[in-house]
């Protein structure tokens, strides 16, 4: 248990630092910024309670917010993702198929994992972009930003998960 928590903390520090120091400065075409830190939420154990994952997500989001000078925005989006994650996961994976607990390419297969990550990324990014624009005056730009950033986030996450296995 302690080991899991420490391991996750380590991952969180690394991901937050990568997000804050590198990815937040990635601004391809002025739209595309990948949000890799959602990886930590996506990799939570299936049997872990929603509340616990949401608290982790909140912590992670707040840390990213502190570094990107946007209190609340990333935290709200990642709590939202943690909240809907079990439902997203159940769309693509039956409970029986996932016994080991942690969703990954190895455990649920590349197809299901890609779908799971893509839908999660789209939801998270939509929430984040909607909250940071906070108006509907430039819907086209918002959609473009969500879709392009999601693509990049998904690619990064698949790469990392592929390496870890």
């Amino acid at each position: 248990m302690v080991q899991t928590v420490l391991f996750r903390l380590l991952w969180m520090v690394v991901l937050v630092l990568v997000q804050a120091l590198v990815l937040n400065n990635v601004n391809i075409l002025g739209y595309i910024t990948p949000y890799l830190y959602i990886y930590i939420i996506l990799k939570a154990d299936v049997n872990e309670s929603r509340n616990s994952v949401m608290l982790w997500a909140f912590l992670c989001g707040i840390l990213v917010d502190i570094f990107s000078d946007s209190p609340g925005i990333n935290a709200a989006s990642s709590v939202f993702l943690a909240f809907v994650r079990p439902n997203v996961l159940s769309l693509f994976v039956s409970r029986d198929a996932l016994e080991q607990g942690v969703p990954s390419i190895k455990t649920i297969g590349i197809g299901a994992f890609t779908k799971y990550v893509s839908v999660s990324a789209l939801l998270h990014h939509s929430f984040l972009v909607a909250v940071s624009y906070f108006s509907l005056t430039s819907v086209g730009e918002m959609i473009l930003r969500v879709v392009l950033s999601s693509v990049l986030t998904v690619v990064f996450i698949l790469l990392i998960d592929n390496i870890r296995k």
């Binding site: 929603r50 509340n51 608290l55 946007s70 925005i73 709200a76 939202f80 906070f134």
Partner: peptide, 29 residues
């Protein structure tokens, strides 16, 4: 359904932070 309460509570904290510390969102609100 306690996770609903936790979810709403956490989001509330986030939005309070957002309106309190982000000039843009606060001003729009």
């Amino acid at each position: 359904y306690n996770y609903w309460l936790v979810f709403l509570g956490l989001e509330l904290i986030c939005f309070v932070l957002m309106f309190r510390f982000n000039r843009y969102q606060g001003s729009v609100f």
